[in-house]
Computed example of a mutant assay.
Amino acid sequence: KVWGCCPENWMVSNTSCYFITSEENNWTESEKKCTGMGAHLLVINIKEEQLFITQKLNRKSSYYMGLSEPKWIDQWQWVDQSPYKKNVTFWHPGESNNHKQHCVFISFLNGKWGWNAASCDMPQKSICEMMKIYL
Rank of each mutant, 00 (worst) to 15 (best):
K1W: 04
K1Q: 07
G4S: 13
C5I: 10
C5N: 10
P7H: 05
N9D: 13
N9G: 01
M11R: 09
M11Q: 10
V12M: 10
S13Y: 12
S13V: 00
S13K: 11
N14V: 09
N14E: 15
T15N: 12
Y18H: 15
F19R: 12
T21E: 14
T21S: 15
S22Q: 14
N25K: 15
N25D: 12
N26P: 04
W27C: 08
T28W: 06
T28R: 14
E29Y: 10
E29A: 14
E31R: 12
E31G: 01
K32F: 06
G36N: 15
M37I: 06
M37N: 10
G38L: 09
H40S: 13
H40T: 14
V43P: 01
I44R: 05
I46E: 14
K47R: 11
E48Q: 10
E48G: 10
E48N: 11
E48H: 04
E48A: 12
I53V: 15
K56F: 03
L57K: 03
R59K: 15
S61L: 08
S62D: 06
Y63D: 05
Y63I: 07
G66F: 08
P70N: 03
K71D: 05
W72K: 11
Q75H: 13
Q77Y: 02
W78I: 12
V79W: 02
D80E: 09
Q81I: 10
Q81P: 00
Y84W: 15
K85E: 15
K85W: 07
K86L: 09
K86G: 05
K86S: 11
N87P: 00
V88F: 09
T89E: 12
F90V: 09
F90G: 07
P93N: 10
G94I: 04
N97E: 12
N98I: 09
H99V: 03
H99R: 11
Q101K: 14
H102E: 07
H102P: 00
V104P: 02
F108V: 07
F108I: 04
L109V: 13
N110V: 01
K112P: 00
W113R: 03
W113H: 04
G114A: 04
A118S: 13
A118L: 01
A118M: 01
S119P: 00
S119L: 09
D121I: 05
M122S: 03
P123A: 02
Q124E: 11
K125W: 02
K125C: 03
I127E: 02
I127M: 00
M130N: 01
M131V: 03
M131T: 06
K132A: 06
Y134I: 11
Y134Q: 04
L135P: 00
